[in-house]
Simulated assay, not measured.
Amino acid sequence: MGYLLNGTFVEACDCRLMCPCWTDDEPDDGHCTGLFAWSVDTGSTVDGLQVGGARVVCVTTHLGRRRGQAAAENTLSVIFVDVVDLPEDERAGALTALGQAFSGDRSGPLEDLKAVNGTVVLVEPAGIAITATGDDVTVTVDSGGAQPVVATLSPACFDGHEALTLRRTALSKELGIADEETVTAHHSDTLTIRAAALPGGFIEVTGRSGMRGPFHYVHKERP
């Protein structure tokens, strides 16, 4: 059937402001550990399943640039999916569908995520909270009684001016950002990642890179 996915994403990593991935450059120190978090809006569907209200977090470690074949070969990811706000009888199907979708295992525009995510070593359900307070945002993941992700970000403002915004970035295609839309630079007041399944998946930093913006993935399968 295809998919229609809209919402807001949050990105945070251990690069310094701003993450070079957004300009298709090498990460700081030649490697990067970070996350993408997606809040899925009401009305979103995958193969006819209503998935609005779901949340997905992808935790990733990678070497070198984030795009292209080399990136796919040097990137490992873990994906967490929260479908607790969906009807109980639809959760199992939505969990599978969203895991596949945000792994990049779908045709259409979501397929571009495959190179960004590289090898997905694990997809599992988890409790995910993505909470906005004004312009600040907090992302937490609770999995099996542990918290592998805690991130608190605020807009990166310079000299008292408004936060830096970007358009037509190197990651716009993979993240489903339209040409006319902007993403807003943030910095992490807190970024803690403890992803045991990933080599290098342990960081605890402050004042590092973040972004926040809209996403749209639309694809209709041919009958």
Rank of each mutant, 00 (worst) to 15 (best):
L153E: 00
G53E: 02
L5G: 05
R222D: 10
A129T: 09
T190M: 07
R194K: 11
T182E: 15
T23N: 12
L110H: 08
T138Y: 02
V51K: 09
V56H: 00
L122Y: 10
A170V: 08
E204W: 04
D135Q: 14
G210K: 00
P199E: 10
P109G: 13
D14G: 07
T8W: 01
H62R: 15
T169I: 02
V120S: 13
H219V: 05
E221C: 10
T61V: 15
C32D: 12
G52F: 01
P214D: 01
H216E: 11
A97I: 09
G145S: 11
R16F: 14
V141C: 03
C157D: 14
I128N: 05
W38K: 00
K173S: 06
I130M: 02
K220Q: 08
T152R: 12
E181H: 04
L95Q: 06
A185W: 10
D82R: 06
W22V: 15
G145C: 11
F158I: 10
G118M: 11
D41E: 12
K220M: 01
G53F: 01
P27Y: 12
P27A: 05
W38H: 03
G127L: 08
V40W: 03
A195N: 15
T45M: 11
Q147A: 13
D135L: 06
F102V: 05
L164Q: 13
H186L: 14
V123Y: 14
G207L: 15
A97D: 11
D85G: 04
I128E: 02
S143E: 09
L76M: 06
F202V: 12
F202I: 05
R168C: 03
T192I: 09
N6Q: 08
G210R: 01
L76A: 12
G145T: 10
D14R: 02
P20T: 10
R212E: 00
A178W: 02
P148T: 04
L110E: 07
T138H: 02
T190P: 05
V123F: 09
G68E: 06
T190V: 14
T184N: 01
S39G: 02
R16L: 08
D112E: 15
V84G: 08
I79P: 07
P214M: 01
P27W: 04
D14K: 08
T42R: 12
V183H: 01
D179R: 08
V84K: 07
A115W: 10
P27K: 12
T152S: 11
V116G: 04
P27G: 08
V120I: 09
E73S: 13
Q50M: 13
Q100D: 15
N117K: 13
A151Q: 05
T190W: 03
T45H: 06
V123N: 10
V137Q: 00
L95S: 05
R65Q: 14
G53I: 01
T138L: 04
G68M: 11
L166I: 02
T42Q: 13
D25A: 15
G52D: 03
G93M: 06
V218P: 02
G201W: 13
I130Q: 01
C21F: 09
E124W: 00
T184K: 02
A170D: 12
M1K: 12
V10W: 00
C19H: 04
E26Y: 15
T165S: 09
S39V: 00
P148D: 10
T184E: 01
F80Y: 15
G68D: 08
V218F: 06
H187A: 04
M1H: 15
E181G: 01
T75R: 15
E90S: 11
V149N: 06
